[in-house]
Design a binder for these strands. Structure first.
Lengths: 355, 355
DNA sequence: TCCAAAAATGGTAGCGCTTCCATAAATTTT
DNA sequence: AAAATTTATGGAAGCGCTACCATTTTTGGA
């Protein structure tokens, strides 16, 4: 049961290893030089057979592979990373893993990297800025070859740590003129603006809105309210809710708006989850959607087409963000030319029955 | 822009480093011995100051910490791991990151481990067994100090790899008499049985069911159908759907059952997501729930109380599974005594309006 | 005050791999 | 057939840290 049972046993280098054939590999940790001895080649050759097989003669390659097979050798990437100064690890800093929308981006981000021999080390900030600082420090001590962020807001210390680390960085889900390195996302202010314009087109001017206390949601809020104001509408029914957002906050949010005097028109929500709750609360209160009250969400989550009525929302390609982020990161790691350091993936309003 | 700009610059060991004070640390990679020289102590002492501060004199500790501060030293965990044979890395193998239910377990699992200085390396199998094999091999080459699985089904090769690796393993979300090492979960057959008994108690005997093609769902299916059979009910309306499950499959599933002649009673679903779809499809078809058709789900996801009507489902504590798994893993890593190698966290049926 | 025990510190040898360089083998060229 | 290339290989020096052990310093009792 002790984890040290046989940790050392393999290093009693066998006396006459050149008599390969029948030896039982000592369990625990076969090393590269065990394989080399068995194959009757140098360690360098085994290393090459593993990492640059094209530089090794066919015959030798076969011998080495046999030895690997026979011993059940598993390379020690830690040693490899130390020697080569390449960890083949990418750090991803995200607000929360249990929020599907982030998970979808990460899923595709990881997939592409995995196919290129990289693994992703996940760190959650739980939406806290100072948590991010600690996290980044921890993660940097693993010497990742690159780092991925959801969001573009980092403390000064955090930015400095990243600068010193001198590794490729990709920020996502938002846009900025001054990325740490590269950024893949879309403009949240534009989203807010687009929603406002969409409602204006529909001649809806009594508007309430519910926003998560989250950088990006607040940017959308800003774009939204400013656009309304620009068109002479001063929406006073605005309500903020904490992150992570949930269904209940939608119900509560609508209740608060109504208590403040809001009485129909449109409710704009900073997430589909909130909108879902608003829809439910509306139904409970006998408010007909969209006739008496239109509702919009954000994110086009899988349930959005299936709410009752189906939800008008803002769609953006989470998979694409993940993919593009992985691609540019890989390009930078491999010292390839990058076309664009700022990549806008855009968004669109999906009109359904709730408006 | 090149990542090699200054990778090496720090190693020109400064000639007279004992004149500490004003030197600007060379950017790129300050090493432990840089810190040691600046602090005027040996490398061993710096290492100890970092890892066992209680074994270092207060005065020395202060000098070292100042030097660390001054240089902006970030320990290289890769080197540390190689030397100490402790990676402080835990691998977690899960079917899919974008499935919230798994994410919740991982979230709490990670949290506890992070608090103990471990980081979690995530691997997704996409529900494929052979994918798991590759993944496990890859992940083992990072020399994790422990490994976490969702599920208890592993190929023979996979089991052998784990055995050879000789590290603590915790399997979760299911139960078995013969865990690889430790297991934290509940019996899915019992869940199936419990649902069947619940329906029988309600005198419902016309039953259809929709099951995901997933080990655990199939176990529930087995328990469910066997229990019904035991009570003389032979349910022929059974339908399997692919993983990952989604809303649409619920709609489709109910449609299929109805096309096969199913005409009300109860529909048992292997996930809340499917049940949600069934609910929607029932509404579309004008089937009243629960009067004409009862519906049950599994998982008690956040939306379950808010469907229309609210969903009767099976609840189990995903957070608890994550927490307990982390605890037993840590205990094993630290060579502590483990009370139980098989931990049953149980489940319960949550009755709502859909039945 | 002196000596034994305890506490603090440092030198050094790896951890298992990759990389540099040199050498050896195979191939081509003249 | 010898010289000039090209292709394969291996030795050895680290990568940056920790752990072992030995040594030095401090503490406390007789």
């Amino acid at each position: 049961m002790s984890r040290k049972d046989n940790g050392q046993s393999s290093n009693g280098k066998r006396a006459r290893a050149d008599e390969a054939s029948v030896e039982r590999p000592s369990v625990g940790s076969v090393t590269l030089s065990d394989v080399a001895r068995l194959a009757g080649v140098g360690t360098t050759t085994v290393s090459r057979a593993l990492n640059h097989p094209d530089q090794v003669a066919q015959k030798t390659l076969k011998k080495v592979n046999q030895a690997i097979e026979l011993t059940g050798y598993v390379p020690n990437q830690i040693a490899g990373a130390l020697a080569s100064r390449r960890s083949h690890l990418i750090a991803a800093i995200i607000p929360s893993i249990s929020n599907t929308v982030y998970a979808e981006t990460i899923k595709h981000f990881s997939k592409i990297l995995r196919d290129s021999g990289y693994q992703v080390l996940l760190g959650e900030t739980d939406y806290l800025e100072d948590q991010e600082e600690t996290l980044v420090r921890t993660v940097l001590s693993r010497k990742p070859d690159g780092i991925f962020f959801i969001g573009i807001n980092h403390t000064a210390i955090c930015r400095r740590q990243l600068l010193v680390a001198n590794i490729p960085v990709v920020e996502t889900w938002d846009l900025t003129k001054t990325p740490l390195d590269m950024v893949v996302g879309f403009s949240h202010e534009e989203v807010g603006k687009a929603i406002a314009e969409y409602l204006l087109e529909k001649k809806i001017s009594r508007v309430g809105s519910i926003w998560a206390l989250d950088h990006r949601a607040q940017l959308r809020r800003k774009g939204f309210l400013e656009t309304l104001a620009f068109h002479g509408i001063n929406s006073k029914y605005v309500c903020d809710v904490s992150v992570p957002t949930n269904f209940g906050q939608g119900r509560e949010g609508l209740t608060r708006l109504i208590n403040e005097g809001f009485n129909g028109g449109a409710v704009v929500c900073s997430s589909d989850t909130i909108a879902h709750g608003v829809l439910a609360e509306a139904q409970t209160r006998g408010l007909r959607v969209p006739e008496e009250m239109a509702v919009t969400g954000f994110g086009d989550q899988t349930f959005a087409p299936f709410t009752n009525p189906s939800l008008t929302t803002v769609k953006f390609d989470r998979e694409l963000i993940g993919r593009r982020a992985a691609e540019v990161l890989l390009a930078r790691i491999n010292d390839e030319k990058i076309e664009e350091y700022i990549i806008d993936v855009g968004f669109e309003i999906i009109e359904r029955k709730s408006t």
